[in-house]
Nucleic acid binder design. Structure first.
Lengths: 221, 221
DNA sequence: CACGAACCTGAACTCTTTCTGAAAATACCA
DNA sequence: TGGTATTTTCAGAAAGAGTTCAGGTTCGTG
């Protein structure tokens, strides 16, 4: 679940990123409007967090640039406390939510999850597919026989990706992009290794291989 | 991942091609507008890189020709530095992105990947013929009794070619061209071998042989 | 009718991709 | 800091896809 954080206060940005990563995101940070515009257009993010005060330009212009290109991921903007004008302008420019500084990271995460759910057309904070259900809050997998299994961070992110679109084939490259940010890029065999672990949980049939194409979650099992 | 590179500067073209091939593309190069138009319509590329200045015509006309046919692969155009008009016209003509010369190959590759991602799922295209339907996204064959069979890469490409024009006779040479780029050229018996495999899926009557001419997909069965 | 060319067929072979188990590296927590 | 959980790498095994081959069959033509 890749996320773009646009924030020029380096300290704040890195603190946030570390907490967001614990919450299952893989975060790219940028400090400038210029880079933000490019990254937003080129990379495949699931959401963006945008501070409006940037050294080299206005965050709203970045947002407009995203929206006029095909970057359609949901965006949450950070505003100074009670700056109503910013809020209104932001929503006009296509933001999905806003949050006034200072804020609790928990609230940011909750709101992010909310706008991502909405943009995917989901209502609940869980993903269901076949006999399985993924609990976003507890980061665990429930089976319809009542059993439950907790997942590590990477297991969870990979499984969420696959279960989010049952039947859709995800290439290893796509999965790598969703699991890791621009800085990290481990050996692609890592996907095979995690697929194997997940299969031990959900059964070998549930995650199918399409040789040369990728993997898919089979909800018809 | 086939890619068509339209560039008249032979040196630049070959340098680019070699780097693109390292990045996982299989590249066909053409230097003329005429050939570009034909290749773009007939071959199955995943993306195109189009230089606008060609010896025998304007690159934008090539792009328009592609767009008016069924060539819907994403296209990145190369323009002279800062040529604003070219950029606008290019996007109007249906380009997906542009890049000003000179450029870093890394950036070209990044942008290519970006436009290819965006264009995925642009259309959930499927080819129907007779009792069969070919799902382009999942690379599988659906029969109208509800059954479904996933195909290997080569099976899929060959079947798509035949089903794309039911009743039309494709010579073995034509099929070879569709399946392989200009560098690879296996024994022509490979077509017979794959025709046989496909017949096991769709039934022997559905793919007919015209001795001395080629094969055709029979949608009247 | 006989012959050659084109096509069919099944199996074998090669090469690439994926699987697998274990070990090494790293991050995390007390 | 030491111990534990997690992530990442590695290398050999297995499986699958692509390709070739050799022999059989069918077809059209002289």
């Amino acid at each position: 679940m890749r996320l773009l954080l646009v924030e020029d206060d380096r300290l704040l940005a890195e603190g946030l990123a570390s907490q967001l990563e614990k919450a299952g995101f893989s975060v790219d940070i940028t400090r400038t409007a210029k880079e933000a515009a490019i990254l937003g257009e080129q990379e495949d993010y699931k959401a963006g967090v945008l501070d409006l005060g940037l050294p080299d330009g206005n965050g709203l212009d970045v947002l407009r640039k995203w929206r006029s290109s095909k970057a359609i991921f949901p965006v949450l903007i950070l505003t100074a406390r009670g700056d109503w004008q910013d809020k209104v302008n932001g929503l006009k420019a296509g933001a999905d939510d806003y949050l006034a500084k200072p804020f609790q990271t928990e609230e940011l995460i909750a709101r992010l999850n909310a706008i991502m759910r909405r943009s995917e057309g989901r209502v609940h904070s869980s993903v269901k597919a076949g006999r399985f259900e993924l609990d976003e809050n507890r980061q665990c997998l429930k089976v319809d026989d009542g059993s439950e299994h907790s997942l590590t961070g990477t297991e969870f992110r990979l499984l969420r990706c696959l279960m989010g679109r049952p039947g859709h084939i995800f290439s290893k490259e796509q999965l790598m992009e969703q699991l890791y940010n621009l800085n990290e890029s481990p050996n692609e065999n890592i996907i095979e290794a995690y697929i194997r672990r997940l299969r031990k949980l959900v059964g070998p049939e549930t995650i199918a291989t399409r040789r040369g194409q990728g993997y898919l979650f089979n909800d018809a099992v």
